[in-house]
Design a protein around this nucleic acid. Structure first.
Length: 782
RNA sequence: GCGCCGAUAGCUCAAUGGAUAGAGCAUCUGACUUCGGAUCAGACGGUUGGGGGUUCGAGUCCCUCUCGGCGCGCCA
């Protein structure tokens, strides 16, 4: 509603300015800082003063007069009829407008009740896009094979092109930590905001299953001195028998995989990814101590890159790897690759469960191994060669490598060495090379010589279900399917169509800005400048640990990270999976849930004890709320120095504060209903239409109306701190009103209906912001 | 060395070039036998790192300096 009024008002001011001789006027409407000044403001008279050679106030006054005249002839149901007649020129030349509060509140109530379907549901037809959101550049879509979503036959309502969001992207070699949590929460919030504004969104989680990181863990299973392997495995896999051995560990791996218990998904118990979390730093330590160890690393890496025959079962592979008949021998590379695939898959499943607990789901898991085996790089290499974007170095330090020259691009000006190696002298592809191929596919630009899309095959990876929009995602049940890529393009289940987005967001740590720029540049030099612009690196700063948090980790886990006094004097310390320094995501969630349970118990008093599953459900919602809000509220380009006390806070500017406001609002309506005073949207809207709405109630109602505007701004700037602050503002205004004005004990029916109407609007709005946009579940009680 | 980011209240952080720079925490003082105190009211707290500049208007843009962080691999 507010957006329509802004658009219309801007148009009216624009034509007034045109009549006053301003060429192509650009009109932007603000919201004044204090509500007493008005609801919408135009500050454009100030910069026009010089050009028009008139005092800004005089300009504002003439605009006001002309806009008034234009509005006089409008129909009663025109959006501008929701503005008070006349407007005020204030300060140095601000033009302030006010809404007709009662009528506007009535409209807001009717609108919110129309759109607010609890649990979301498909938003179709798409909502109108926000005006300030950066527009899509059409790019080179519409060619043969086009973009799946592009065609609405017969020019019906135009459907915006598909947006691809890639996030999470955890190396599948150990448990997720809080840095990955920041990535996933930001990415998921982005997805939610895009969907809220009506964009079709595809969520991808890229799986780097062929890199050294996975190789390192496989080295741990196969070659790390046995007693070290057993020490790492002991906590997660007790009961390996009286004489545990490497063969026993691998046999257990095979048995668990066969039984489907390799990944248990039980929160609070060590899962497979936790085992790897422990194993990985032991391997890196071994590398430092023993030179022969790194040869094992190279051996495993090569085996992984070479892949394995599809008919090789994990069981067979492990039998081969543990065979001592007739004597221990060099393992078959295919068997190593098969084991590596199983290790990566188990870790991926653990990560999915972890993110699922936060209500984060995905559509497809592109695998790096499939990028290699499906020949994505080969095709991208041909395209780069044809475009003259790369060259083979014959001398110098890069001799024998295929490099992309960046010297001609202003983006890379001033660099000592502006060349980026894509293909190494040993013939293997760098990560950036693979990323270029992947990015081309995401943009629908990876095409075979005939023009057909060069695509993956796909197969179902998991089934899942989610309650509402913010509930936990549960795998192994439900009707929704998560796909993974496959290297055989003939594998193509119905409904599995991915890639070829009109815009692509890559949610990646700011430290990868340089390679991301290279990828973008590659898209550009391949002749797709518009697509390059639609390939967006969503950069965010890293999560680090305060020295205090590091100390606490050492104490609670009985570890010694060997940090120097100098390290501990720094403002924050980087996490390091290789050294085992970090806070695992699940461990944090467990701690949060425990703290939430304690807080619930504290507030319970002496009354009847709650059923444990009730407490668990509430505690989970509170833990997720606290965690997600903490990640969302901070600006993205500021280092998040993790501190336990801060993370475990449930009062003040926190997720639970917001949840509490929603719970409170719902409680009011429960109490009203019990006394037959609940009313309805329609009765409240009717009462509001004729009423004089006092300042405090209006402040909250108006803030609710700004939600769509805030989502647009958050999306345009990729700053979800704006959305978090908006939610907090609403909750704050509500809590204040709650204290000052009782609905149940209102002085008379008119006042009650008015307050109830504003509370109703708040309840619908905050519920939508929390669950649909921020992914924060609202518990029934707290 | 070059590049990117940050520096705002004691602490952690907000603030599309716009009107009186806001929250929370911490400290202190209060809150109805009332819809739940994970709340609310109040107090205290600021030369927005320093210096120049642009502008009707600068925390925000430009230049410069200081401090801190991160990038600049045939790692991923």
């Amino acid at each position: 509603m507010l957006e329509t009024i802004r658009t219309e008002l801007a148009a009216a001011i624009g034509s007034a300015l045109a009549a006053m001789g301003v060429e192509a006027p650009q009109v932007a409407l603000d919201v004044p800082p204090r509500r007493q000044l008005g609801d919408l403001a135009w500050s454009g008279a100030l910069p026009l003063a010089k050009a028009l050679r008139r005092a800004p106030r005089a300009i504002a006054e003439e605009v006001a007069r002309r806009v008034d005249e234009a509005r006089a002839g409008l129909a009663a149901d025109h959006p501008l009829a929701l503005l008070e007649p006349g407007c005020a020129v204030e300060g140095p030349g601000f033009l302030n407008f006010r809404l007709r509060r009662g009528a506007a509140l009535a409209r807001l109530l009717r609108d919110s009740c129309k759109t607010a379907v609890p649990g979301g549901g498909p938003k179709c037809p798409p909502k109108v896009m926000d005006m300030r959101e950066p527009g899509f550049t059409p790019g080179e879509r519409g060619g043969p094979g086009g973009v799946a979503q592009a065609g609405v036959p017969g020019g019906g309502p135009k459907c915006p092109p598909k947006v691809i969001v890639e996030h999470t992207n955890i190396n599948p070699n150990k448990a997720a930590h809080i840095g990955h949590l920041r990535n996933a929460v930001l990415g998921d919030t982005l997805v939610r905001c895009l969907r809220y504004l009506g964009h079709p969104v595809e969520v991808q989680d890229y799986i780097d299953d062929t890199g050294v990181q996975v190789a390192d863990v496989v080295v741990g299973f196969l070659f790390l001195p046995e007693e070290r392997l057993l020490a790492a495995v002991a906590a997660a896999w007790p009961g390996l028998g009286p004489a545990p051995s490497r063969a026993g560990v691998l046999a257990s791996f095979a048995a668990r995989a066969a039984a489907g218990t390799l990944v248990t998904g039980t929160l609070g118990e060590a899962d497979f990814d936790d085992l790897c979390w422990d194993l990985y730093p032991r391997v890196t330590r071994w590398y430092e101590e023993d030179e022969s160890a790194t040869a094992r690393r190279a051996e495993v890496l090569h085996a992984i890159e070479a892949g394995f025959p599809p008919e090789l079962s994990l069981d067979q592979a492990i039998k081969d790897l543990t065979s001592t008949d007739p004597e221990p021998r060099t393992p078959n590379p295919g068997s190593i690759a098969r084991l590596a695939a199983a290790v990566a898959e188990a870790n991926v499943r653990c990560h999915l469960v972890t993110m699922g607990r936060l209500g984060i789901a995905y559509d497809v898991l592109p695998h790096e191994s499939d990028i290699l085996h499906r020949g994505f790089w080969q095709r991208a290499f041909e395209l780069l060669q044809a475009a003259g974007a790369i060259r083979l170095e014959s001398e110098g330090k890069n001799a024998g490598c295929w490099v992309m020259s960046l010297a001609d691009s202003p983006e890379f000006a001033g660099m000592a060495d502006a060349d980026k190696i894509l293909l190494r002298s040993n013939g293997t592809v760098t990560y950036t090379g693979k990323d270029i191929a992947y990015q081309l596919w995401k943009l629908g630009l990876l095409r075979d010589a005939g023009g057909a899309l060069h695509d993956f095959g796909y197969r179902a990876f998991a089934h899942f279900a989610q309650d509402g929009t913010a509930g936990p995602v549960r795998y192994g049940e439900g009707a929704r399917i998560l796909y993974r890529t496959a290297s055989d393009p003939a594998e193509r289940p119905a409904g599995a169509a991915f890639g070829a987005g009109g815009r692509v967001y890559n949610v990646i740590d700011v430290r990868q800005s340089y390679p991301q720029k290279v990828v973008k540049e590659a898209i550009r030099v391949l002749g797709h400048p518009a697509a390059a612009e639609n390939s967006i690196h969503f950069a965010y700063e890293m999560v680090a640990l305060t020295p205090k948090a590091v100390r606490r980790l050492e104490e609670t886990h009985g570890l010694d990270f060997g940090l120097t006094a100098e390290d501990m004097a720094r403002p924050f310390l980087e996490m390091s999976g290789r050294r085992g320094i970090g806070v695992a995501a699940d461990a944090l969630l467990v701690t949060l849930i425990r703290e939430a349970e304690r807080a619930i118990a504290e507030r319970q008093g002496e009354g009847a004890a709650l059923a444990p599953e009730m407490v668990a459900a509430r505690a989970r919602a509170i833990a997720v709320g606290a965690l997600r809000y903490q990640m969302a509220r901070q600006g993205r380009n500021r280092v998040l120095a993790f501190d336990f006390d801060e993370a475990l806070a449930f009062e003040g500017d926190t997720g639970p504060y917001l949840q509490y406001s929603a719970v409170r609002a719902a409680k009011v309506f429960e109490k009203l209903a019990a006394q037959g005073l609940a009313g309805s949207t329609e009765t409240d809207a009717g009462a509001a239409a004729a009423a004089a709405v006092p300042d405090d109630l209006w402040e909250l109602a108006f803030a609710c109306a700004r939600t769509r505007e805030v989502v647009g701004k958050a999306l345009a700037s990729l700053e979800f701190s704006l959305l978090a602050a908006h939610a907090r503002d609403l909750a704050q205004l509500f809590h204040k009103l709650y204290h000052e004005h009782s609905v149940l004990h209102a002085e008379d029916e008119g006042i009650r209906a008015l307050r109830r109407g504003v509370f109703r609007l708040f309840g619908a709005t905050i519920g939508e912001i929390l669950e649909e946009l921020l992914g924060i579940p609202v518990p029934g009680e707290m």
